[in-house]
Design a protein around this nucleic acid. Structure first.
Length: 240
DNA sequence: AACAGCTTCAACCGCGGGTGT
DNA sequence: AACACCCGCGGTTGAAGCTGT
């Protein structure tokens, strides 16, 4: 059985929104709030489908949107988050106040991809282009050099390799997929103080919740995955 | 000025997950 | 368990604007 359409397409407008439609939508949401997108168009007197209304509000009309050009800091944060999360635009947007997933996705496809290619970095894998197949660690360890927040790509030394990976397993991994290794390793924070269950400013935020794999904002796990500030601490993350 | 090619980004589409019955 | 419905996400499209010739 097929899914019923989200709206009666024969009687809905499509394409660019007019100023009048925008005003109707804003006025309706001011009075009734967000939500119930399916019934909203009728209630607001709009000949649009609910999905279209939702998209217009979230991506364009919401009052808390920042708009304007992305800053260098925002670009670097997007690159870091993308290397960690992949194309999870809504999760990335959650870390950039005032930016929408659609905006970030567009910005990625039009600007950042090119920027990374110019740096010699593959935007899909965040690994150097033309590098022969080797095991690369993307580390978010804070750099000592002033002003550089660039993602650091470093090749593992053989001694590190042997301590971090059993040799047999490493070779097996390379055989299976010599070019791409998406395995994510999450280790405990480097600093001793972070080994304690973190709870600053009264809130505890779990990494799993933060990534959307768990629902609760008030996680009870108290493990090392819990983050104190709601911002990922990249120092504790390593991607192989 | 006119045209072609390129870039940008708002909007659409289809799908999957969550929830209620 | 099965189904229907709604919401949100990510990929894609296409119109508008920009740039080069």
């Amino acid at each position: 059985m097929g899914r019923s359409p989200c709206c009666e397409k024969a009687h809905t407008n499509k394409g660019a929104w007019t100023k009048e439609e925008d005003e109707r939508l804003i006025a309706h949401i001011r009075v009734h709030g967000e939500g119930c997108w399916r019934s909203l168009p009728k209630a607001a007197g709009l000949l649009r489908c609910g999905k279209s209304c939702r998209l217009r509000w979230i991506n364009y009309l919401r009052p808390d949107l920042k708009r304007g050009n992305f800053t260098e800091e925002e670009d670097e944060l997007i690159i870091k988050l993308h290397s960690l999360l992949g194309n999870k635009w809504s999760l990335i947007a959650g870390r950039l106040p005032g930016r929408t997933d659609n905006e970030i996705k567009n910005h990625w496809n039009t600007h950042i991809k090119r920027k990374l290619l110019n740096r010699g970095v593959d935007p899909a894998t965040h690994r150097p282009i033309n590098e022969h197949a080797s095991n690369v660690t993307i580390s978010f360890e804070r750099r000592e050099e002033k002003g550089s927040a660039a993602v650091r790509h470093e090749e593992r030394s053989s001694s590190e390799e042997s301590s971090a990976w059993p040799r047999g397993r490493l070779q097996q991994q390379q055989l299976k997929c010599p070019d791409l290794n998406l395995e994510l390793c999450i280790g405990p924070p480097l600093q001793q103080e972070s080994l304690e269950p973190v709870k600053r400013e009264g809130t505890t935020l779990c990494f799993s919740c933060s990534l959307g794999s768990q629902k609760s904002n008030e996680c009870k796990c108290n493990g090392f995955l819990c983050l104190s500030t709601g911002v990922l601490d990249y120092r504790s993350l390593q991607m192989n």
